[in-house]
C-alpha cells in the first residue's frame, strides 16, 4: 500500500473480524482525511498473539463528528484517531 499524504480522504474498512484489533467499531465505514503519517509500528493484531509483527504505517485520521455520528449536536467538532494502514482505503 502506498503511503497516503496528509489531506488524503480515506474510508475505514467495515471489516468486523473477531480478535484483538485497534480500530474502534464506531469508525468502521466512516470517512475522514489523513491528518499526519506516523510509524511504522508493529501490527498489534500480530503482537497480541506473540507473533513477530509486520511494520505498518500508522495514520492519524481526522473525522468530522457529523460524519461519525449523524445525530451529532455539533457536527463540525472533530475526532482524531490512529488507524493502521490495512484498515484504510484511499478515496
Amino acid at each position: 500500500m502506498q503511503a497516503l499524504e496528509p489531506g488524503t480522504p480515506v474510508r475505514v474498512r467495515r471489516m468486523m473480524p473477531p480478535g484483538h484489533v485497534r480500530t474502534p467499531a464506531y469508525l468502521r465505514g466512516k470517512t475522514g482525511a489523513v491528518e499526519r503519517v506516523l510509524g511504522p509500528f508493529g501490527n498489534p493484531e500480530q503482537l497480541a498473539y506473540g507473533h513477530t509483527p509486520d511494520r505498518l504505517p500508522l495514520y492519524r485520521v481526522r473525522f468530522r463528528l457529523g460524519d461519525v455520528w449523524p445525530d451529532a449536536a455539533t457536527p463540525d467538532d472533530t475526532l482524531d484517531a490512529e488507524i493502521y494502514a490495512h484498515w484504510l482505503e484511499a478515496l
Binding site: P24, T74, I83
Partner: peptide, 27 residues
C-alpha cells in the same frame, strides 16, 4: 464531548472547535 466537558464545569463557546483525540494505537 461538549456534554462531557460541561460535567467537568467547562462550557465552550460555539465558535471554538472541539477536537477529540481517541488514543487508539501507539500515540
Amino acid at each position: 464531548p461538549r456534554k462531557v466537558l460541561a460535567e467537568f464545569g467547562l462550557t465552550l463557546p460555539e465558535n471554538v472547535t472541539v477536537r477529540v483525540h481517541d488514543s487508539t494505537a501507539d500515540m
